[in-house]
Design a protein around this nucleic acid. Sequence first.
RNA 1: GGAAGGGUGGCCGAGUGGUUUAAGGCACACGCCUGGAACGCGUGCAUACGUGAAAGCGUAUCGAGGGUUCGAAUCCCUCCUCUUCCGCCA
Length: 426
Amino acid sequence: MHDIKAIRDNPEGFDTGLARRGLAPLSTELLKIDAERRDHMQKLQDAQARRNAASKDIGEAMKAGDKGLAERLKAEMGSIKEFISSGEAVERDINQRLEAALAGIPNIPLDDVPDGKDESGNVEVRRWGKPPGFNYEARQHFDIGEWLGLMDFETAAKISGARFVVMKGQLARLERALAQFMLDLQTGTNGYTEHYVPYLVNDAAVYGTGQLPKFAEDLFKTTDGRWLIPTAEVSLTNLVRERIIDEKDLPLRMTAYTPCFRAEAGAAGRDTRGMIRQHQFSKVEMVSITTPENSRGELERMTGCAESVLQALGLHYRVLRLCTGDMGFGSRMTYDLEVWLPGQNAFREISSCSVCGDFQARRMDARYKPADGKGTRYVHTLNGSGLAVGRTMVAILENYQNADGSVTIPEALRPYMGGVELITRA
RNA sequence: GGAAGGGUGGCCGAGUGGUUUAAGGCACACGCCUGGAACGCGUGCAUACGUGAAAGCGUAUCGAGGGUUCGAAUCCCUCCUCUUCCGCCA
């Protein structure tokens, strides 16, 4: 949610920011509603001030026992009363129009975000590790999983539909092991506090993080009107909704392991085979709540926390700074982590870390009390996956596959796998 | 699902139609006191919007939204939510 005052102060800057996102200028239209709103408010508030003064006089007249004066003053209130009640309705209407207009506008990119139309404009900032280098043609994860007899898309389709999977045995355990491993790393070394959060949330929560009102079709909705979370970001970020936090308690660093549900509308035909793009997947999410001064640095830190998982697992990856055309709705800057998938012979997104500035905080009314004790300011929010469990599993299967079709378990995971070193066909 | 009782500032908590302009306390900030602290004393301390160069002024906000009234934290309606009890239940 954008601050209409900031737009009023610098409409050109706002439109320039929109242009970087490939959007037409909107400031003129917004400021027209804003002017109408302020003009109306002035008239309404004048009327309310007169009413309040008269009410006070009536109260004093009653107290003094002057019924005649009180009745005369009451009679004079008639027309003002009418104006006020219709005026309040008009004010609500204007405010709703302004809010609706603002709610659909994406966040403005930071200055050091590269311009670009789509993912081809993203900039690689670093690479870690090396591809495994097989002396045979690397198989894709679904071939490996199905050959092992532990990954079953057909049965999943029978009971649920496309884009679901059933796993069993050591693969089911690998999913659990990865989640435990990631959580331990983020809560231990990286200092995030583990949370257990709701998977069903209300309209306000999904609005707060920016999925509503524009992206309802990407979500699953329950018959009682709630939403299945598309990421734990929704639940975790909304934990600070309508709160005022002491600056000394910042930053808040929170993590949660949850299932995520995405309708994948508009993704028809993309990644239809395998586990890359599912309606249901699990993810260890990280959310940070910071002061404005610290949010940019926190983005670097958070990205490093996500990277630490891939490094511990020995997976080759690269870090991209997303360009203006590829960033999510609420983001001011995003780093994507792309892991190397030998089976696909390509880097694929496995994590995404974003700083949202006060964009979500304004929608949620999440503020902090600065250390100097004066007033309150909006917090800054950041979110990042640390990491997507299913895609990490894909990466392990493809990077740790052996010529005979078995899969070696990376050392860091073995304690979580009960000491299992190799997954083989039953 | 049924019944009853609640929701007031960062926190606790008073307030049942008109100087409430939301008491009081805690926490916090600043000052005095002190060798330095604690204690004590004093001052300050919600947010949003509008207006103004600023000080200030105005309006709204006591879970949310409607309503009654000249005037609502207070009365009425709807909803949300919490607590307790009953029922059901992993």
